[in-house]
Design a protein around this nucleic acid. Structure first.
Length: 429
RNA sequence: GGAGAGGUGGCAGAGUGGCCGAUUGCGUCACCUUGCUAAGGUGAUGUACCGGUAACGGUACCGGGGGUUCGAAUCCCCCCCUCUCCGCCA
Protein backbone atom coordinates (compact mmCIF):
# COMPACT_ATOMS: atom_id res chain seq x y z
CA UNK A 1 0.00 0.00 0.00
CA UNK A 2 1.20 3.46 -0.81
CA UNK A 3 0.76 6.43 1.48
CA UNK A 4 -2.33 8.38 0.42
CA UNK A 5 -0.28 11.53 0.96
CA UNK A 6 2.07 10.42 -1.79
CA UNK A 7 -0.89 10.04 -4.11
CA UNK A 8 -2.13 13.51 -3.29
CA UNK A 9 1.25 15.09 -3.85
CA UNK A 10 2.27 13.23 -6.96
CA UNK A 11 -0.53 11.18 -8.47
CA UNK A 12 1.25 11.00 -11.78
CA UNK A 13 4.12 9.08 -10.19
CA UNK A 14 1.66 6.42 -9.05
CA UNK A 15 -0.06 6.28 -12.44
CA UNK A 16 3.28 6.09 -14.24
CA UNK A 17 4.34 3.30 -11.91
CA UNK A 18 1.25 1.27 -12.74
CA UNK A 19 1.85 1.86 -16.44
CA UNK A 20 5.46 0.77 -16.16
CA UNK A 21 4.17 -2.42 -14.58
CA UNK A 22 1.73 -2.78 -17.48
CA UNK A 23 -1.23 -2.54 -15.11
CA UNK A 24 -3.37 0.14 -16.74
CA UNK A 25 -6.46 -0.79 -14.71
CA UNK A 26 -4.50 -0.29 -11.53
CA UNK A 27 -3.54 3.18 -12.73
CA UNK A 28 -7.25 4.00 -12.68
CA UNK A 29 -7.37 3.06 -9.01
CA UNK A 30 -5.11 6.05 -8.32
CA UNK A 31 -7.77 8.44 -9.51
CA UNK A 32 -10.56 6.53 -7.84
CA UNK A 33 -8.68 6.64 -4.56
CA UNK A 34 -8.10 10.37 -4.90
CA UNK A 35 -11.73 11.02 -5.71
CA UNK A 36 -12.87 9.14 -2.61
CA UNK A 37 -10.17 10.79 -0.53
CA UNK A 38 -11.34 14.23 -1.62
CA UNK A 39 -14.91 13.51 -0.61
CA UNK A 40 -13.76 12.11 2.69
CA UNK A 41 -11.68 15.19 3.39
CA UNK A 42 -14.67 17.35 2.71
CA UNK A 43 -16.89 15.28 4.94
CA UNK A 44 -14.64 14.70 7.93
CA UNK A 45 -14.38 18.27 9.25
CA UNK A 46 -18.17 18.60 9.14
CA UNK A 47 -18.61 15.30 10.93
CA UNK A 48 -15.96 16.15 13.50
CA UNK A 49 -17.66 19.43 14.28
CA UNK A 50 -21.00 17.73 14.79
CA UNK A 51 -19.47 15.12 17.01
CA UNK A 52 -17.70 17.78 19.03
CA UNK A 53 -21.05 19.45 19.61
CA UNK A 54 -22.70 16.20 20.57
CA UNK A 55 -19.91 15.37 22.91
CA UNK A 56 -19.76 18.64 24.77
CA UNK A 57 -23.52 18.83 25.08
CA UNK A 58 -23.57 15.25 26.29
CA UNK A 59 -21.00 16.02 28.93
CA UNK A 60 -22.95 18.98 30.15
CA UNK A 61 -26.06 16.87 30.35
CA UNK A 62 -24.36 14.41 32.61
CA UNK A 63 -24.21 17.10 35.24
CA UNK A 64 -27.76 18.26 34.91
CA UNK A 65 -30.74 17.17 36.86
CA UNK A 66 -33.37 14.98 35.16
CA UNK A 67 -35.77 17.86 34.55
CA UNK A 68 -33.22 20.07 32.83
CA UNK A 69 -32.19 17.24 30.54
CA UNK A 70 -35.47 17.27 28.73
CA UNK A 71 -34.62 20.61 27.21
CA UNK A 72 -31.45 19.20 25.70
CA UNK A 73 -32.88 15.99 24.39
CA UNK A 74 -34.58 17.30 21.27
CA UNK A 75 -31.46 18.94 19.93
CA UNK A 76 -29.35 15.94 20.79
CA UNK A 77 -31.72 13.63 19.01
CA UNK A 78 -31.55 15.73 15.85
CA UNK A 79 -27.78 15.75 16.07
CA UNK A 80 -27.76 12.02 16.42
CA UNK A 81 -29.68 11.52 13.20
CA UNK A 82 -27.47 13.92 11.33
CA UNK A 83 -24.31 12.31 12.61
CA UNK A 84 -25.55 8.84 11.79
CA UNK A 85 -26.11 9.79 8.18
CA UNK A 86 -22.63 11.23 7.83
CA UNK A 87 -21.09 8.27 9.61
CA UNK A 88 -22.78 5.92 7.21
CA UNK A 89 -21.23 7.79 4.31
CA UNK A 90 -17.87 7.92 6.06
CA UNK A 91 -17.89 4.17 6.46
CA UNK A 92 -18.62 3.64 2.77
CA UNK A 93 -15.92 6.05 1.74
CA UNK A 94 -13.29 4.54 4.00
CA UNK A 95 -14.01 1.07 2.69
CA UNK A 96 -13.84 2.32 -0.86
CA UNK A 97 -10.62 4.21 -0.24
CA UNK A 98 -9.07 1.18 1.34
CA UNK A 99 -10.11 -0.97 -1.60
CA UNK A 100 -8.85 1.39 -4.28
CA UNK A 101 -5.66 2.17 -2.41
CA UNK A 102 -4.91 -1.51 -2.00
CA UNK A 103 -5.13 -1.87 -5.78
CA UNK A 104 -2.51 0.77 -6.46
CA UNK A 105 0.77 -1.03 -7.09
CA UNK A 106 4.02 -0.13 -5.44
CA UNK A 107 6.21 2.34 -7.32
CA UNK A 108 8.82 0.53 -9.40
CA UNK A 109 12.27 1.96 -8.76
CA UNK A 110 13.79 4.05 -11.56
CA UNK A 111 16.38 1.37 -12.15
CA UNK A 112 13.69 -1.17 -13.08
CA UNK A 113 14.04 -1.72 -16.85
CA UNK A 114 11.17 -0.88 -19.14
CA UNK A 115 9.60 -3.91 -20.75
CA UNK A 116 6.38 -5.82 -21.28
CA UNK A 117 7.21 -9.31 -19.96
CA UNK A 118 10.00 -11.64 -18.93
CA UNK A 119 11.45 -11.60 -22.43
CA UNK A 120 12.57 -8.06 -21.75
CA UNK A 121 14.26 -8.67 -18.43
CA UNK A 122 17.81 -7.39 -18.46
CA UNK A 123 20.72 -9.66 -17.71
CA UNK A 124 23.12 -8.13 -15.22
CA UNK A 125 25.73 -10.89 -14.92
CA UNK A 126 26.53 -14.54 -15.52
CA UNK A 127 28.46 -17.06 -13.54
CA UNK A 128 29.81 -20.46 -14.55
CA UNK A 129 30.27 -22.22 -17.83
CA UNK A 130 27.40 -23.82 -19.66
CA UNK A 131 28.30 -27.49 -20.01
CA UNK A 132 29.04 -29.09 -23.40
CA UNK A 133 28.15 -32.75 -23.37
CA UNK A 134 30.17 -35.26 -25.36
CA UNK A 135 27.10 -37.49 -25.37
CA UNK A 136 23.38 -37.03 -25.93
CA UNK A 137 22.33 -35.24 -22.76
CA UNK A 138 18.89 -36.08 -21.47
CA UNK A 139 16.19 -34.02 -19.82
CA UNK A 140 15.78 -34.46 -16.06
CA UNK A 141 12.51 -36.36 -16.36
CA UNK A 142 14.11 -38.99 -18.56
CA UNK A 143 17.00 -39.40 -16.19
CA UNK A 144 14.64 -39.51 -13.23
CA UNK A 145 12.23 -42.00 -14.72
CA UNK A 146 15.03 -44.25 -15.98
CA UNK A 147 16.46 -44.32 -12.47
CA UNK A 148 13.06 -44.93 -10.88
CA UNK A 149 13.39 -41.64 -9.05
CA UNK A 150 10.20 -39.99 -10.12
CA UNK A 151 6.69 -41.05 -11.11
CA UNK A 152 4.45 -38.55 -12.84
CA UNK A 153 1.82 -41.07 -13.95
CA UNK A 154 0.78 -42.31 -10.55
CA UNK A 155 1.04 -38.80 -9.18
CA UNK A 156 -1.42 -37.59 -11.81
CA UNK A 157 -3.71 -40.53 -11.05
CA UNK A 158 -4.02 -39.72 -7.40
CA UNK A 159 -3.56 -35.96 -7.41
CA UNK A 160 -4.02 -34.61 -10.92
CA UNK A 161 -1.64 -33.04 -13.37
CA UNK A 162 1.43 -31.08 -12.33
CA UNK A 163 2.14 -33.45 -9.51
CA UNK A 164 5.07 -35.76 -8.93
CA UNK A 165 6.32 -38.39 -6.58
CA UNK A 166 9.98 -38.53 -5.70
CA UNK A 167 11.68 -41.81 -4.77
CA UNK A 168 14.99 -43.00 -3.50
CA UNK A 169 18.07 -40.95 -4.16
CA UNK A 170 16.16 -38.13 -5.77
CA UNK A 171 13.98 -37.81 -2.66
CA UNK A 172 17.19 -37.69 -0.67
CA UNK A 173 18.76 -35.15 -2.99
CA UNK A 174 15.62 -33.01 -2.70
CA UNK A 175 15.99 -33.00 1.05
CA UNK A 176 19.77 -32.50 0.89
CA UNK A 177 19.32 -29.33 -1.13
CA UNK A 178 16.84 -27.94 1.36
CA UNK A 179 18.99 -28.84 4.34
CA UNK A 180 22.00 -27.24 2.72
CA UNK A 181 19.99 -24.09 2.07
CA UNK A 182 18.79 -23.82 5.67
CA UNK A 183 22.26 -24.48 7.07
CA UNK A 184 23.80 -21.89 4.78
CA UNK A 185 21.39 -19.22 5.98
CA UNK A 186 21.59 -20.16 9.64
CA UNK A 187 25.37 -19.82 9.37
CA UNK A 188 24.74 -16.30 8.13
CA UNK A 189 22.67 -15.36 11.12
CA UNK A 190 19.17 -15.96 9.83
CA UNK A 191 16.72 -17.38 12.35
CA UNK A 192 15.13 -20.60 11.10
CA UNK A 193 11.35 -20.74 11.11
CA UNK A 194 8.81 -23.46 10.52
CA UNK A 195 5.74 -21.37 9.68
CA UNK A 196 2.00 -22.00 9.26
CA UNK A 197 1.11 -23.21 5.78
CA UNK A 198 -2.54 -22.21 6.10
CA UNK A 199 -3.11 -18.54 6.70
CA UNK A 200 -5.95 -16.07 7.00
CA UNK A 201 -6.80 -13.57 4.31
CA UNK A 202 -5.11 -10.80 6.31
CA UNK A 203 -1.71 -12.36 5.72
CA UNK A 204 -2.41 -12.79 2.00
CA UNK A 205 -3.59 -9.21 1.80
CA UNK A 206 -0.78 -7.86 3.90
CA UNK A 207 1.92 -9.35 1.75
CA UNK A 208 0.16 -8.10 -1.37
CA UNK A 209 -0.98 -11.40 -2.84
CA UNK A 210 -4.61 -10.39 -2.36
CA UNK A 211 -6.34 -8.79 -4.10
CA UNK A 212 -5.17 -10.21 -7.38
CA UNK A 213 -3.69 -13.58 -6.51
CA UNK A 214 -6.87 -15.39 -5.52
CA UNK A 215 -6.90 -17.56 -8.64
CA UNK A 216 -3.37 -18.74 -7.95
CA UNK A 217 -4.23 -19.75 -4.39
CA UNK A 218 -5.69 -22.95 -2.97
CA UNK A 219 -8.36 -21.97 -0.50
CA UNK A 220 -10.03 -23.90 2.30
CA UNK A 221 -13.35 -22.14 2.16
CA UNK A 222 -14.83 -23.91 5.18
CA UNK A 223 -12.25 -22.36 7.43
CA UNK A 224 -11.49 -19.20 5.50
CA UNK A 225 -7.85 -20.21 5.19
CA UNK A 226 -5.42 -20.17 2.30
CA UNK A 227 -2.55 -22.52 1.50
CA UNK A 228 0.57 -20.44 1.15
CA UNK A 229 2.34 -20.18 -2.18
CA UNK A 230 5.50 -19.11 -0.39
CA UNK A 231 6.74 -18.77 3.18
CA UNK A 232 7.10 -15.08 2.42
CA UNK A 233 3.45 -14.81 3.46
CA UNK A 234 3.61 -16.11 7.04
CA UNK A 235 7.14 -14.91 7.72
CA UNK A 236 6.71 -11.34 6.50
CA UNK A 237 3.41 -11.27 8.41
CA UNK A 238 5.05 -12.56 11.56
CA UNK A 239 5.25 -9.15 13.23
CA UNK A 240 2.20 -7.68 11.55
CA UNK A 241 0.29 -5.32 13.83
CA UNK A 242 3.33 -4.93 16.07
CA UNK A 243 5.39 -1.97 17.12
CA UNK A 244 8.96 -3.21 17.16
CA UNK A 245 11.80 -1.57 19.02
CA UNK A 246 14.38 -0.33 16.57
CA UNK A 247 17.16 -2.29 18.23
CA UNK A 248 15.57 -5.65 17.37
CA UNK A 249 16.00 -4.78 13.69
CA UNK A 250 16.99 -6.05 11.25
CA UNK A 251 15.04 -9.28 11.64
CA UNK A 252 16.47 -11.97 9.39
CA UNK A 253 14.48 -15.14 8.97
CA UNK A 254 14.83 -18.28 6.92
CA UNK A 255 11.83 -20.55 6.55
CA UNK A 256 11.50 -23.94 4.99
CA UNK A 257 7.97 -24.77 3.94
CA UNK A 258 5.77 -26.53 1.49
CA UNK A 259 4.30 -24.17 -1.09
CA UNK A 260 1.09 -24.58 -3.06
CA UNK A 261 0.15 -22.94 -6.33
CA UNK A 262 -2.86 -23.58 -8.51
CA UNK A 263 -1.02 -22.53 -11.66
CA UNK A 264 -4.32 -21.44 -13.17
CA UNK A 265 -3.92 -20.02 -16.63
CA UNK A 266 -0.74 -21.92 -17.39
CA UNK A 267 -2.34 -24.73 -19.36
CA UNK A 268 0.08 -26.21 -21.80
CA UNK A 269 3.02 -24.35 -20.32
CA UNK A 270 5.95 -26.32 -18.92
CA UNK A 271 3.80 -29.42 -18.69
CA UNK A 272 6.58 -31.97 -18.58
CA UNK A 273 8.78 -32.65 -15.65
CA UNK A 274 9.41 -30.89 -12.39
CA UNK A 275 9.46 -27.29 -13.57
CA UNK A 276 5.94 -26.11 -12.90
CA UNK A 277 4.17 -28.09 -10.19
CA UNK A 278 1.35 -27.49 -7.73
CA UNK A 279 3.29 -28.32 -4.62
CA UNK A 280 6.93 -27.88 -3.78
CA UNK A 281 9.33 -27.19 -0.95
CA UNK A 282 11.07 -23.90 -0.60
CA UNK A 283 13.61 -22.30 1.68
CA UNK A 284 12.92 -18.61 1.77
CA UNK A 285 14.90 -15.71 3.25
CA UNK A 286 13.03 -12.71 4.63
CA UNK A 287 14.41 -9.48 6.05
CA UNK A 288 12.55 -6.82 8.01
CA UNK A 289 14.42 -3.63 8.73
CA UNK A 290 14.15 0.09 9.33
CA UNK A 291 12.79 2.45 6.70
CA UNK A 292 16.10 3.30 5.09
CA UNK A 293 16.49 2.94 1.37
CA UNK A 294 20.26 2.50 1.48
CA UNK A 295 19.85 -0.38 3.91
CA UNK A 296 17.17 -1.97 1.75
CA UNK A 297 19.50 -1.80 -1.23
CA UNK A 298 22.31 -3.40 0.75
CA UNK A 299 20.01 -6.18 2.00
CA UNK A 300 18.85 -6.74 -1.55
CA UNK A 301 22.45 -7.24 -2.70
CA UNK A 302 23.05 -9.55 0.26
CA UNK A 303 20.08 -11.82 -0.32
CA UNK A 304 20.95 -12.18 -3.99
CA UNK A 305 24.48 -13.04 -3.00
CA UNK A 306 23.21 -15.68 -0.58
CA UNK A 307 21.38 -17.41 -3.42
CA UNK A 308 24.34 -17.07 -5.75
CA UNK A 309 26.58 -18.68 -3.17
CA UNK A 310 24.24 -21.63 -3.04
CA UNK A 311 24.25 -22.05 -6.81
CA UNK A 312 28.02 -21.75 -6.90
CA UNK A 313 28.28 -24.41 -4.21
CA UNK A 314 26.04 -26.57 -6.39
CA UNK A 315 28.37 -25.86 -9.34
CA UNK A 316 25.50 -24.65 -11.49
CA UNK A 317 25.83 -21.95 -14.15
CA UNK A 318 23.37 -19.10 -13.70
CA UNK A 319 22.63 -15.57 -14.59
CA UNK A 320 21.07 -12.70 -12.70
CA UNK A 321 18.42 -10.63 -14.44
CA UNK A 322 16.84 -7.35 -13.48
CA UNK A 323 13.12 -7.94 -13.84
CA UNK A 324 11.44 -5.41 -16.12
CA UNK A 325 8.35 -3.38 -15.27
CA UNK A 326 5.89 -5.60 -17.09
CA UNK A 327 7.13 -8.71 -15.30
CA UNK A 328 7.11 -7.09 -11.87
CA UNK A 329 4.31 -7.84 -9.41
CA UNK A 330 2.19 -5.19 -7.78
CA UNK A 331 3.93 -5.07 -4.41
CA UNK A 332 7.56 -5.08 -5.56
CA UNK A 333 9.70 -2.00 -6.03
CA UNK A 334 12.46 -3.96 -7.72
CA UNK A 335 13.23 -7.58 -8.34
CA UNK A 336 16.16 -9.68 -9.46
CA UNK A 337 15.52 -13.16 -10.75
CA UNK A 338 18.27 -15.72 -10.78
CA UNK A 339 17.99 -18.15 -13.64
CA UNK A 340 19.91 -21.39 -13.60
CA UNK A 341 21.09 -23.18 -16.71
CA UNK A 342 18.76 -26.00 -17.68
CA UNK A 343 20.23 -27.99 -20.57
CA UNK A 344 16.90 -29.55 -21.62
CA UNK A 345 15.44 -26.07 -22.10
CA UNK A 346 18.63 -24.93 -23.78
CA UNK A 347 18.15 -21.88 -21.67
CA UNK A 348 18.29 -20.41 -18.23
CA UNK A 349 15.19 -21.08 -16.11
CA UNK A 350 14.04 -19.08 -13.10
CA UNK A 351 15.03 -20.65 -9.81
CA UNK A 352 15.15 -17.61 -7.52
CA UNK A 353 13.33 -14.36 -7.12
CA UNK A 354 14.67 -11.57 -4.92
CA UNK A 355 12.41 -8.62 -4.19
CA UNK A 356 12.51 -5.45 -2.22
CA UNK A 357 9.31 -3.69 -1.21
CA UNK A 358 10.35 -0.74 0.92
CA UNK A 359 7.32 -0.12 3.18
CA UNK A 360 4.61 -1.35 0.80
CA UNK A 361 3.97 -4.64 2.58
CA UNK A 362 4.61 -3.15 6.02
CA UNK A 363 1.83 -0.61 5.50
CA UNK A 364 -0.60 -3.36 4.62
CA UNK A 365 0.55 -5.44 7.56
CA UNK A 366 0.70 -2.54 10.01
CA UNK A 367 4.27 -3.51 10.72
CA UNK A 368 6.06 -0.64 12.43
CA UNK A 369 9.01 0.18 14.63
CA UNK A 370 9.73 2.97 17.05
CA UNK A 371 12.88 4.86 16.04
CA UNK A 372 15.62 5.00 18.63
CA UNK A 373 15.85 8.79 18.37
CA UNK A 374 12.32 9.07 19.73
CA UNK A 375 10.70 10.02 16.44
CA UNK A 376 7.32 8.93 15.16
CA UNK A 377 6.70 5.23 14.53
CA UNK A 378 7.74 4.20 11.02
CA UNK A 379 6.72 1.39 8.74
CA UNK A 380 9.43 -1.19 8.25
CA UNK A 381 11.04 -2.17 5.00
CA UNK A 382 10.72 -5.78 3.86
CA UNK A 383 12.63 -7.98 1.43
CA UNK A 384 12.72 -11.61 0.48
CA UNK A 385 14.43 -14.09 -1.78
CA UNK A 386 14.43 -17.76 -2.51
CA UNK A 387 17.32 -19.73 -1.11
CA UNK A 388 16.28 -22.98 -2.78
CA UNK A 389 13.04 -24.21 -4.30
CA UNK A 390 12.83 -27.91 -4.94
CA UNK A 391 12.08 -29.94 -7.00
CA UNK A 392 12.68 -27.18 -9.54
CA UNK A 393 16.32 -26.86 -8.51
CA UNK A 394 16.67 -30.60 -9.12
CA UNK A 395 16.30 -29.91 -12.83
CA UNK A 396 19.65 -28.14 -13.23
CA UNK A 397 21.25 -30.46 -10.69
CA UNK A 398 20.29 -33.57 -12.64
CA UNK A 399 20.80 -32.12 -16.08
CA UNK A 400 24.09 -30.30 -15.58
CA UNK A 401 25.69 -33.04 -13.53
CA UNK A 402 24.43 -36.02 -15.54
CA UNK A 403 26.93 -38.51 -16.87
CA UNK A 404 26.86 -40.59 -20.03
CA UNK A 405 25.61 -43.72 -18.29
CA UNK A 406 22.67 -41.98 -16.64
CA UNK A 407 24.24 -41.51 -13.22
CA UNK A 408 24.47 -38.09 -11.65
CA UNK A 409 27.53 -36.52 -10.08
CA UNK A 410 26.98 -34.97 -6.66
CA UNK A 411 28.54 -31.52 -6.14
CA UNK A 412 31.00 -31.55 -3.25
CA UNK A 413 28.91 -29.24 -1.12
CA UNK A 414 26.01 -31.69 -1.09
CA UNK A 415 27.93 -34.86 -0.41
CA UNK A 416 27.86 -34.56 3.34
CA UNK A 417 24.05 -34.60 3.17
CA UNK A 418 24.11 -37.77 1.07
CA UNK A 419 26.35 -40.09 3.01
CA UNK A 420 29.43 -38.70 1.28
CA UNK A 421 28.40 -40.26 -2.00
CA UNK A 422 29.92 -38.74 -5.13
CA UNK A 423 27.49 -40.28 -7.58
CA UNK A 424 23.77 -41.05 -7.48
CA UNK A 425 22.07 -43.82 -9.41
CA UNK A 426 23.18 -46.87 -11.38
CA UNK A 427 24.34 -46.99 -14.96
CA UNK A 428 21.16 -47.26 -17.02
CA UNK A 429 22.34 -46.56 -20.55
C1' G B 1 -16.75 -30.67 19.85
C1' G B 2 -18.80 -29.27 25.30
C1' A B 3 -18.23 -25.88 29.81
C1' G B 4 -16.03 -21.62 31.92
C1' A B 5 -12.66 -17.15 32.23
C1' G B 6 -10.49 -13.37 29.65
C1' G B 7 -8.71 -9.73 25.38
C1' U B 8 -7.57 -2.11 27.78
C1' G B 9 -1.71 2.36 25.83
C1' G B 10 5.67 0.13 24.15
C1' C B 11 4.79 -3.71 28.40
C1' A B 12 2.07 -5.01 33.01
C1' G B 13 -2.56 -4.01 35.01
C1' A B 14 -7.16 -0.89 37.18
C1' G B 15 -11.64 0.72 35.44
C1' U B 16 -19.34 -1.79 34.85
C1' G B 17 -23.38 4.11 31.37
C1' G B 18 -21.71 10.91 31.41
C1' C B 19 -16.51 13.79 35.98
C1' C B 20 -12.49 8.10 31.23
C1' G B 21 -8.26 8.70 26.00
C1' A B 22 -8.67 6.12 30.28
C1' U B 23 -5.93 5.39 37.82
C1' U B 24 -1.33 3.03 38.74
C1' G B 25 3.27 0.42 37.96
C1' C B 26 7.31 -0.69 34.51
C1' G B 27 9.88 1.14 30.40
C1' U B 28 11.49 5.59 27.74
C1' C B 29 12.97 10.94 27.58
C1' A B 30 14.32 15.72 30.04
C1' C B 31 15.83 18.17 34.31
C1' C B 32 17.35 17.98 39.51
C1' U B 33 19.79 15.59 43.66
C1' U B 34 23.54 12.37 45.09
C1' G B 35 31.34 12.53 44.83
C1' C B 36 31.99 4.74 43.23
C1' U B 37 28.09 0.50 41.52
C1' A B 38 23.42 1.93 42.63
C1' A B 39 19.56 4.85 44.27
C1' G B 40 16.17 9.09 44.92
C1' G B 41 13.10 13.52 43.27
C1' U B 42 10.24 16.48 39.57
C1' G B 43 8.07 16.69 34.95
C1' A B 44 7.01 14.69 30.21
C1' U B 45 5.69 10.40 27.37
C1' G B 46 -0.23 6.40 22.94
C1' U B 47 -1.68 5.96 17.60
C1' A B 48 -4.22 7.78 13.34
C1' C B 49 -6.85 11.44 10.77
C1' C B 50 -8.62 16.73 10.01
C1' G B 51 -7.38 22.13 10.53
C1' G B 52 -2.96 25.33 11.49
C1' U B 53 3.88 27.76 9.35
C1' A B 54 3.74 26.67 14.48
C1' A B 55 2.08 26.77 19.45
C1' C B 56 -2.23 24.39 19.50
C1' G B 57 -7.29 22.83 18.58
C1' G B 58 -10.85 19.01 16.96
C1' U B 59 -12.31 13.90 16.05
C1' A B 60 -11.68 8.69 16.19
C1' C B 61 -9.49 4.46 18.52
C1' C B 62 -10.12 0.12 25.17
C1' G B 63 -9.64 -7.62 20.08
C1' G B 64 -13.05 -6.99 15.17
C1' G B 65 -18.05 -5.92 13.42
C1' G B 66 -23.15 -4.67 14.42
C1' G B 67 -26.93 -2.83 18.09
C1' U B 68 -29.32 -0.14 22.49
C1' U B 69 -28.81 5.11 24.32
C1' C B 70 -29.05 12.15 24.09
C1' G B 71 -24.29 9.72 25.67
C1' A B 72 -20.75 3.07 25.65
C1' A B 73 -14.08 0.66 27.49
C1' U B 74 -18.59 -0.17 30.55
C1' C B 75 -25.18 -2.94 28.44
C1' C B 76 -26.92 -6.55 24.15
C1' C B 77 -25.77 -9.69 19.57
C1' C B 78 -22.23 -12.00 16.07
C1' C B 79 -17.14 -13.15 14.93
C1' C B 80 -11.79 -13.73 16.02
C1' C B 81 -8.01 -14.80 19.51
C1' U B 82 -5.87 -16.46 24.38
C1' C B 83 -6.23 -19.36 28.91
C1' U B 84 -8.49 -23.46 32.19
C1' C B 85 -11.34 -28.07 32.52
C1' C B 86 -13.70 -32.21 29.74
C1' G B 87 -13.88 -35.03 25.12
C1' C B 88 -11.18 -36.44 20.68
C1' C B 89 -6.53 -37.05 18.43
C1' A B 90 -0.80 -36.85 15.49
Amino acid sequence: MLDIKLLREDPEAARAGARKKRMPDRALAVDEALRVDAELRELLPRLDALRAEQKSAGKAMGKLGPAEREAFLDGQKRLKVEIQALEEREKQLRAELQQQLSLVPNLPDPEVPEGKDDSENVETRRWGTVPEFAFAARPHFEIGEAQGWVDFTRAADMAGSRNYILFGDLALLHDAVLRFAVDLMVARGFVPIDPPLLVRDAAMFGTGFFPGGEEQTYRCEKDGLNLIGTAEVPVTSLHGGEMLAEDVLPKKYVARSACFRREAGTYGKDTRGLYRVHQFQKVEQVILDVADKARSLQHHRDIVENAEDLLQAFELPYRVVAVCGGDLGGPQAMKYDIETWMPSRKNYGETHSASRFYDYQARRLDLRYRPKDGGKPQFCHTLNNTVAASPRILIPLLENHQQQDGTVRVPKALRRYLGDREVLGRPVW
